[in-house]
């Protein structure tokens, strides 16, 4: 263990991998000092664990209805967070719902940056007309209000979880394209790119093999920071009935189903909302901390 630490902290790394891992280690040390970022990390970690073991952790079947036990308050033996209007256990539904949230977040986190990276790097690498046209398109998408565009897209595609993901991804890519383009512009004329080009590498190889990896770190930070927003938009679509469909335990949908009982049985809406809040707070805290660590400009002196 001690040997590993010395190897990581070695000021004269002997291989590229050692240097990179050493950088990670230093970043981790800085992140660890920030209590807010660590709590964010813990929340996101908990979400992963809960989602992975949902069927084991959930005390009840999230879809099992029991009309004799409907709208029980929190603290009822056997139903820690109470039950909803169909007598389903709210805790079990929240636990199972974490899988849906993670599924949506995961899919958006893969598709939107992919699209953004592609458009941003191509735009930055070629410049000229390609750049002008692609950036205009990006601006138009940026000018479109996100939630309303997502609403209109879902109206076209029809409600459902995959369509919600698609709509969110189609509204989420422009910032990544901007970031990727900016990074590409800084490396486009660098010597190592020229060297690769002189060795005869084609454009796809240069972009995918050499430009994209340079852009990845800054895009990853943006993605982490955006995840909370994605969770909120997905929950908003679910709340409006345009995302995940019942009886699936999506958190936004659960809030909306509790609206009728808001003043008498407040917990039906409150509990899933708390879950959304805690998880997106976790992503925000983590993203915030990551930016402090990875962006030397904003790091405290």
């Amino acid at each position: 263990m001690a040997g590993l630490r010395v190897w990581l902290m070695d000021p004269n790394p002997t291989s590229r991998r050692q240097a990179r891992l050493g950088q990670f280690w230093l970043g981790w040390l800085r992140l660890r000092r920030n209590p807010l970022a660590v709590s964010g990390l813990v929340i996101v970690g908990l979400l992963l664990v809960v989602a992975a073991f949902a069927p084991v952790i959930a005390p009840h079947d999230p879809l099992a209805q029991d009309l004799s036990r409907r709208l029980l308050p929190p603290g009822t033996p056997g139903n820690l967070l109470g039950t909803d209007d169909f007598g389903r256990d709210i805790l079990s539904r929240i636990i199972t719902g974490s899988r849906i949230t993670l599924y949506i977040v995961g899919l958006v986190a893969v598709t939107a940056p992919f699209l953004g990276l592609l458009i941003g790097t191509v735009s930055g690498y070629f410049g000229g007309w390609t750049d002008a046209v692609l950036m205009r398109i990006t601006d138009i998408f940026l000018a479109f209000p996100r939630l309303i565009l997502a609403l209109a897209l879902v109206a076209v595609l029809g409600p459902g979880i995959e369509n919600a993901v698609l709509a969110i991804a189609l509204t989420a890519w422009p910032p990544y394209a901007r970031v990727a383009r900016a990074e590409t512009l800084t490396v486009r004329n660098s010597d190592y790119i020229a060297a690769v080009r002189l060795q005869g590498a084609g454009v796809p190889r240069i972009i995918l093999g050499h430009v994209v990896p340079t852009c990845l770190p800054s895009v990853i930070i943006r993605v982490t920071l955006d995840m909370a927003g994605v969770i909120l938009i997905a929950a908003g679509l679910g709340f409006l009935g345009l995302g995940v469909q019942p009886p699936l335990p999506e958190w936004g949908l659960m809030i909306s189903s509790g609206r009728k009982y808001l003043f008498e049985q407040w917990w039906v809406s409150t509990m899933p909302g708390l879950a959304i809040f805690i998880v997106s707070l976790g992503f925000n805290l983590l993203g915030d901390g990551l930016r402090d660590v990875l962006d030397p400009k904003s790091a405290p002196k």
Partner: peptide, 26 residues
């Protein structure tokens, strides 16, 4: 200020509205 700000970022605004109605109106 930082935490209150981050909480504002993380709050589903429709849920906050429902809670607000529940507490301040109901």
């Amino acid at each position: 200020v930082r935490v209150v700000g981050l909480m504002g970022y993380s709050m589903p605004v429709f849920w906050l509205g429902l809670i607000g109605l529940l507490v301040f109106y109901g």
